[in-house]
């Protein structure tokens, strides 16, 4: 076998190795660049770009926030008194999610426990976790923020029963 053929084969082998690496990187691109954003309905999309990014999702849910505090100003949700998470507004309003003892991750990523695919949710947006028996909400440095009773969550906070938590255009609360 001539040296040239061998050289070409060796170079081809190196190229093959790189192709393999890039095939894997391509397959997990959603890890690196986040999940693809679904296009919103035309009317919402038209309203979206005009205001500041965080103001956009805040506006429609402000109305939902108002009635919540009176009903939910009570005790903090604990592993004993809270059993479910109920979606109160958004695409799946009325849906429930059982609370166990494991933390619940929220985001656009497909390995979140609650997957919210809209323009306002980050890949890893927030998480709910049990801390000394109490349910806490932690914002995972999301772009548009997580709101508890209308105020932005900066440090992990305990969630009162019935308090409104807002992630993107979805709100939910913890109930007995």
């Amino acid at each position: 076998m001539s040296e040239l053929t061998l050289l070409v084969l060796q170079l081809g082998f190196l190229v093959l190795l790189w192709v393999f690496v890039f095939a894997i990187v391509y397959a997990l691109r959603s890890d690196l660049f986040g999940q693809r954003v679904r296009k919103l309905q035309p009317d919402v999309a038209a309203a979206g770009p005009a205001p500041a990014p965080s103001a956009g999702p805040a506006a429609p849910t402000a109305a939902v926030n108002r009635p919540a505090p009176p009903s939910g100003g009570g005790a903090d949700a604990t592993s004993e008194n809270a059993t479910r998470l109920v979606i109160t507004s958004g695409a799946k309003a009325g849906a429930e999610f059982p609370l166990g003892r494991d933390e619940i991750t929220i985001g656009r990523s497909s390995d979140s426990a609650i997957i919210i695919r809209d323009d306002y949710t980050s890949t890893h947006h927030a998480r709910l976790m049990l801390w000394n028996g109490r349910w806490m909400i932690q914002d995972l440095d999301s772009t548009n923020g997580t709101f508890l009773n209308g105020s932005r969550v900066t440090v992990p906070q305990p969630i009162p029963l019935g308090a409104t938590v807002k992630v993107g255009a979805t709100t939910f609360e913890l109930r007995r």
Partner: peptide, 12 residues
């Protein structure tokens, strides 16, 4: 096990 959890999917 990580992927094998109860999930809720909300499509915006």
């Amino acid at each position: 096990t990580v992927r094998n959890h109860p999930r809720l999917v909300i499509d915006g």
